[in-house]
Computed example of a mutant assay.
Amino acid sequence: VKALHALGAAVIAVSRTNTDLVSLSEQCPGVEPVCVDLGDWEATERALGSLGPVDLLVNNAGVALLQPFLEVTKEACDTSFNVNLRAVIQVSQIVARGLIARGAPGSIVNISSQASQRAITNHSVYCSTKGAMDMLTKAMALELGPHKIRVNAVNPTVVMTLMGQANWSNPQKAKTMLDRIPLGKFAEVENVVDAILFLLSDRSGMTTGSTVPVDGGFLAT
């Protein structure tokens, strides 16, 4: 949001946490905040159904509920798939229908993960949602391509957001992941943002249905 705002885009920011939206609006005057839980289909339809016109979409909302496989709960499955996958379908439908109605081209970027292609302990549900997102990205690209709407995914490694720092601050835990990354470091937020901006822009005009790793080489090992 901050990068797009800095580039002069008119940005609609969606979050379920109103305090984050208030803080964002103070940092980025002009950003339109929308507070809704994307895991709630009916509330999302009410909140986003009349927004627009929208030309570019970044599906960035996600949850990571970590449990050993034998302890995975129904609630973790439902919440994870509702937010990480179903919301991507719903919000993308809303935006794509608007683009098609206007006859306008567009670009959608889904934020996936290296966990879509590599199993990680205690991440069975999370890995499953991201694996499904990669295939959803390809299926969307196939069907929306004739309407000049491109759809791609970005697949980061651990990113040093507040959540990333909280989950990977243990040096011993971090070492097990870093040892598998040829560049020997986790991603910074800017690394992911740059990939997103490329895929949103006309500079990637011939790229659709792709999954772009921002992983320091993790998927190469």
Rank of each mutant, 00 (worst) to 15 (best):
R180D: 12
S124F: 03
A96W: 00
E143T: 13
R86M: 15
G145W: 07
R180N: 06
I100W: 02
G164Q: 09
G164A: 13
M140Y: 02
K130Q: 06
V125A: 11
T161V: 06
M133Q: 13
G106H: 01
A166Y: 08
L178Q: 07
I181Y: 07
M177N: 13
P105V: 08
L178Y: 05
G164M: 08
A166Q: 09
N122S: 14
K138V: 13
N155G: 13
A115G: 12
T121Y: 13
L144M: 06
S107W: 05
A115E: 14
M177K: 14
T137N: 01
T176H: 07
L99N: 10
A87Y: 07
A119Q: 02
I149Q: 03
R118K: 10
L85S: 06
A101G: 10
G131I: 00
V95P: 01
I108Y: 00
A87T: 04
V154S: 07
V158I: 15
V158Y: 06
W168S: 11
V91A: 04
A174V: 12
T137R: 00
L85K: 07
K173P: 01
G145E: 05
A87G: 05
Q117V: 13
G131N: 04
S112L: 04
E143S: 11
R150P: 03
N82S: 14
P156E: 12
L144A: 02
N110Q: 07
N84D: 15
P156C: 08
M177S: 12
T161I: 08
G103F: 09
M160G: 04
N167R: 09
S169M: 09
H123S: 12
M163N: 02
G164C: 09
D134C: 05
I120P: 01
M133A: 10
R97K: 13
L144N: 03
C127D: 11
L162I: 11
K175M: 15
I89G: 05
S113H: 05
D179V: 08
I111F: 07
K130W: 09
W168F: 15
T121G: 06
G98D: 13
L144S: 01
V159R: 04
V109S: 01
I94P: 04
T157E: 10
N82C: 10
I89P: 00
S124V: 10
N82F: 08
C127E: 07
W168D: 08
S124G: 03
Q117R: 15
Q172T: 12
A104K: 15
A96D: 03
S92R: 00
V158T: 15
K173F: 08
M135C: 06
S116H: 14
A139V: 12
V109M: 03
S107K: 06
A115F: 15
S124Y: 07
L178N: 06
M140L: 15
Q172Y: 09
V109P: 00
G103H: 04
T129K: 04
K130R: 12
T137Q: 00
L142I: 15
S128H: 03
A96T: 05
M160N: 13
K173G: 01
I181P: 02
Q117M: 15
Q114K: 14
S113F: 08
E143M: 08
V83R: 14
V95H: 01
V83Q: 10
S92Y: 02
Q172V: 11
P156K: 10
P171Y: 10
Q90H: 09
V151D: 00
I100A: 10
S113I: 07
D134E: 13
Q165H: 14
N110K: 01
I89L: 11
V109E: 01
S112N: 08
